[in-house]
Each structure stands twice: as C-alpha cells, then as structure tokens.
Design a protein around this nucleic acid. Structure first.
Lengths: 335, 335
DNA sequence: ACGTTTCAGTGAACCGCTTCACAAGGGTTT
DNA sequence: AAACCCTTGTGAAGCGGTTCACTGAAACGT
C-alpha cells in the first residue's frame, strides 16, 4: 500500500474505538495490567493492525517516566571515557533502556546545567562521572532521582549506588612501581579541571609521593590529544627533564608518546611513561604502555545494574569498589 | 533557604498567576513572541524568581519539537565512529541542541527499530550513518523529518542533506598506492555487515582491483578489537600470507597490528597494512599507520550544519562530497 | 436469599505546555 | 465619524497518554 501522505500515527483512542473499549482499558491492556487476558490479546491485535505504538512523549508527560537513563560524562574527549560511555550505552540497550549521553567537557558549570536538563527530561536514572563531586546539586538530585556515581565517590548524598575507583590504591600501585624501577623525579600529568583542584586522586599522588620520597612535579593538561601533546612537549623539552611521567589517563600518556616522537626522544629510554585506565590501544603502542588497569566491563556492568535496579524501584544503594591492577608493558625503564 | 522537601517545580500557571497574565501570554513572552517588551521583561523576572523553567516534555508534546537531534551510528564499536559521534555531540551542543546517540551495532534490523524510536521521540532531525542505506524506511522518515545521511549517500529519499564519502576515490587512492609500492596480493578486511553485502565501497574495491590487476582476497571482520585480531590472525597465519592488508577502517588495522605482534611478524616488513579513516591514534603506532584520511571535523560540521538548518526550517538539501587524502606513514613497505 | 468481595472496565481529570481563533483597545485612513 | 488595521493579550481546546475513583456484574460465603 503506497502511502503518499505521511498518515498520522494512530492514537490510543483509535485503538479504543476499534476494540470497543475505553482508552483507559487499552492503556492498561498494552501494559498487561488490570484487564483480562482475552482483552489484552484483542487489544494487541488491534494495535498491531493499526500500527499503533504508544507515544513516548505523551507517556512521559503523563506518567513521569521515560525509560531513559541519563549518562553524564566528565569529558568525552578522553578515549577511555568514550569507551566507557559506549559500553554503558550498549549495556543499557541490552536492558531495553536507552542512554541519553551528555558531555560535561570538564566544566562544572556545564555539568550542573546538563544534570538539571537530564532531570527535566525525566530520565529514570542518572549515571554520572562527576567533574565536581562536591556540588550540592547531587544531593538535591538524588532525592528525587536514582543517581549512580562513578569515580571517586565523594558524592555526599543518598545515591542509588556508587562505583568507586580505589584511586589511592591505583596511585600507590603506579608510584611504587616507578620507585621500584629506580625513578625519583617524576612529572605527574593530570587532566585540567576548572574546579575541584584538590581531587582525591591528586591528593593521593602527593601523599604517596611524600611517603615514597619521590620528587614530583604536577602539571595539568587540557583534554584532547593536541593539547596534551603540547603540555608534554613543554615537559620534555624543559631544562631538567624528569625520568618518568605519570599520566592520569592513558589519553594523556598518548600525548607524551606523541611529543616524545616529535622531539626524537625514545620511550622508555629517554622518558618512562605510565598511564592510568588501560585503554585498548595502550597495548598496541610501541612500547606498550604500562598502566593501571580498571576493569571497564565490570564498571559498566556495576553502574548499569545499580541504576536500572534503582529505576525499577529496588533500592540497592550499594557501593562497589573497583580495585586496580598494574598492567606492566614496556614503557617504563629501570633507571 | 533550606529545601527539605523537593518542592514541586513551578508551572507556567503559577508564573501566570504571579504576573496577572494568562498562561498563554507567559508562554509567548518566554519565547519572545507576540507580546510587548515590557511584558516580556516582567515575565522573565517572575519566572526567575519562581525558578520556573519550561518542562521540555510538556513542551515537546504540545509543540511536537524537542530541540534534540537523533544520531544513529552504524557501529560505535569502531573507534573512528566513536570520535565522530563525540564530535557531532559536541558540535550540536555548541548550537544549543542535544544529540540523542544510538548505536545500531551493525544490525539493520536494530537500525530500523532505533530510527523509529528516534522519530517517536520527536527529534527535530536525524543524522544517520546507515548500515543499510537501501532500506525504504529512510524515504518514509525523510518525508516528515529532516534526515542527514553520512556515508555512501545511497539513501534514495528527499533527505535534508548528505555528507558523502567519495569512497571510490578513497579506494583508488589506497589501492593505487599499494600497487605503486609493488603489492599484488592483497587481503581486504571489511567490517561485517549483516546485510547489504554489496556495499559500494566493497564494489569499488573489486572494480579497482580488477582495473589495477590486483589479486585481492576479501574477508570480513566483526567489530571490536578482539574479534578483528582474530580474523587478522587467521589471515596472517594462513598458508599463503598476502603482502598487504587493506583494512576498511583504522580500527580493523589495529587488529592487524595486534595479530602481527602476537605472531612475531613485523609491520611493514612481514606485512604491509593500510587503514581507512585516520583515527588520531593511527599516527602514534609504530610504524605509523598509512591510511586514507577523511576530514572528520569537516564531516562533523557539515552534518551538523545541514541538520540544524533543516530542523530550523531552512531547506538546504545539499550534498557535500568529502574528498579523501592519502596519509602516508610507515606501515607499507616497498615490495 | 442476601451482603460482601473480586474482577474487568469506564469516565474524567490531569500531566504542563502550545496554539488557534478571537477580542479589546488604540491609531490611521478616508 | 465610520471603517480598517495593528498590537497585545485571552480562553479554551488540544497534544496523547496515565491514573484515580468508581460501577456493574459475577463469584463467593453463609
């Protein structure tokens, strides 16, 4: 049947008419509630014939739920976070839910705006990897909406769950490894964050460095390969080049590789590099990037499980701690 | 002011009450329509005081528009497509619009379902990188919704615009390059697609190979580094290893690198590799991946410009052809 | 035989905004 | 002064579902 005009969609009222039922009955029937098996079948039939499918927007307005889960990423410029977002999107889809993915781009103000927007969009739950975990907004949101935080778990609120990176452990792993390899002077490259300069991970770095008697020099790198490369270039061509660079994400480490290549320096002979994340590409570089591995699949599963459970009304409120592992490849030399 | 209860949001009626206007007037005022400057100001004031913000869902239901753009990706497992999706998301945000990103995961059936869902979500426009460009669905959708296609531009419909990859040219570039390097026996690795086996790019490969007198062997690789590596491993350890592998995406080429490393083969000495896309990581590998570069920023800008223009009612209906460039690095050896 | 419970289904209000048709008032034209 | 327009604003009807309070009939217990 050719359909010259984009015929208007069938509404619930038309299905009601076709079946001789009330719209209410149809509404119930389609959700398998309240009505007899027989009616359900009859309604299904009619709906199929009319090509009826409930309008998600109208449904959202009336019921206050959308079936969507908001995903607010810290910065999608980071490749690992891209993978994470993609993984969560896929895991949600497997649970018949959809992710509304937004990117705070490292900006706390934007993060707040987007979080509100997500709430206004009536997402049934929110997974957030907060740029600013200390924002009071999270507590506010968590009162009305299941919020699952991924990260340093500093959200001081009744979240529906938290997937916590044991960054203290991750940092210890990395720094002890570097120390054991004989490194003392270490550049630490952390992602730029407009606010929250005293992010726990950074704090751990400083504390651990003190404990281990390391001489660290913290510098921040904006997101994006080009920007990171620039920072790395400055670090590498400075008067006194450190022996090792500890990068707070594999993406940043990639920038160090790029800068080193430009300057004709070799990894790890001229500069040792450590990453943090373990992105799939890290194993492909030459030399392979030695890094701190977080079980990304585990994180994805945990976050999705928590948020979906909470959205379905089962209160779990669990805190799942992610333990890191050192993934030794070849980017750190003995000194 | 402490807010123990998550006080209900203000509605337009309350703003109307506060200003002594009708809800209609408030609605107009907030959008700067129909009413006097003075009233607009007064309404703005009151809205700010009440913390009023229009409910996007109600607005969508009443007006039929959401401000969102749907983005339907072919397969987000591909790193280049991840970058593309991320880029489009960011570009849209810069235009005060939001992307609803969905992933067809290479499955035409899923693609159709998701496309319909996007339409039902009342997206104002749709950017799609179709898995199955021949599906009649596109024509249907395009009648009621601005659709911008990215890819081989085979969508036979009144799209709002198309960003076309000149794959013929890209393939020619790659294969001529390989021929000039003295390669004759070439493995071609293309992404698995459940349907549309005669994708134009593949067709071009065959045609060009014939023209150039190359001996090609086409094999398909599922998405994902692990799966790709497996296919590459089979290719590399087969009885008669080809001299070069032409991979239809950089992601696939990464799999070849991985497999080669596993098998102790060197790129390019034991196997030459060519990619297609030019993902940022390709320059960081050792050796750098020689590939066909598509201007990803240009694609992002073009797609976003077209879809936003169409969503705003300006009919452009342009077809923008993307010309590829050969990016020579070190993964192909002279034979 | 009668009151009570359960089941299947109904009607209407509502979710919060937009938009259409129309009206009141003031300014211009003829 | 009548006729016309423009501007600013109103009232009410949607948009397409959900949900609450309720009804009529059948089933049940005694």
């Amino acid at each position: 049947m050719p359909r010259s005009q984009p015929r208007k969609r069938a509404t619930i009222r038309e299905v009601a008419q076709a079946t001789g039922l009330s719209p209410a009955a149809v509404s119930y029937a389609l959700r398998g509630l309240q009505v007899s098996e027989e009616t359900i079948e009859r309604v299904r039939q009619a709906a199929a014939e009319l090509g009826y499918e409930a309008d998600p927007i109208a449904r959202a307005l009336a019921s206050g739920r959308t079936g969507m889960i908001g995903l607010l990423c810290g910065s999608l410029e980071d490749l690992w976070q891209q993978s994470l977002a993609f993984g969560i999107g896929r895991a949600l889809r497997d649970k018949d839910r959809y992710a509304l993915i937004l990117d705070a781009a490292g900006d706390p103000a934007r993060e707040r705006t987007l979080a509100r927007q997500l709430r206004d969009q009536r997402v049934d739950g929110l997974i957030v990897q907060p740029v600013d975990p200390a924002a009071p907004l999270w507590a506010q949101l968590a009162e009305t909406l299941p919020v699952v935080a991924i990260g340093d778990a500093l959200i001081d609120a009744r979240t529906a769950g938290e997937v916590v990176f044991d960054n203290r452990r991750g940092v210890t792993l990395a720094l002890e490894y570097l120390r054991d390899k004989g490194h003392r002077r270490i550049a630490v490259l952390t992602p730029t964050r407009s606010s929250t300069p005293d992010r726990p991970a950074d704090v751990h770095v400083i504390a651990e460095a003190n404990r281990l008697g390391l001489d660290i020099d913290v510098m921040t790198a904006p997101h994006g390969l080009a920007a990171t490369t620039e920072v790395a270039r400055a670090m590498l061509s400075g008067a006194s080049r450190p022996g090792a660079a500890f990068c707070f994400s594999d993406s940043i480490a990639y920038g160090v590789y790029a800068a080193a290549a430009e300057l004709g320096l070799r990894v790890p002979d001229d500069i040792s590099v450590m990453g943090y994340d373990d992105h799939p590409m890290s194993g492909l570089l030459t030399p392979g990037l030695t890094t701190v591995n977080w079980d990304i699949d585990g994180i994805v599963r945990a976050a999705v499980r928590l948020v979906v459970a909470a959205a379905d009304g089962q209160h779990r409120r669990r805190r799942i701690i992610q333990a890191p592992e050192l993934r030794e490849r070849g980017s750190v030399s003995r000194r």
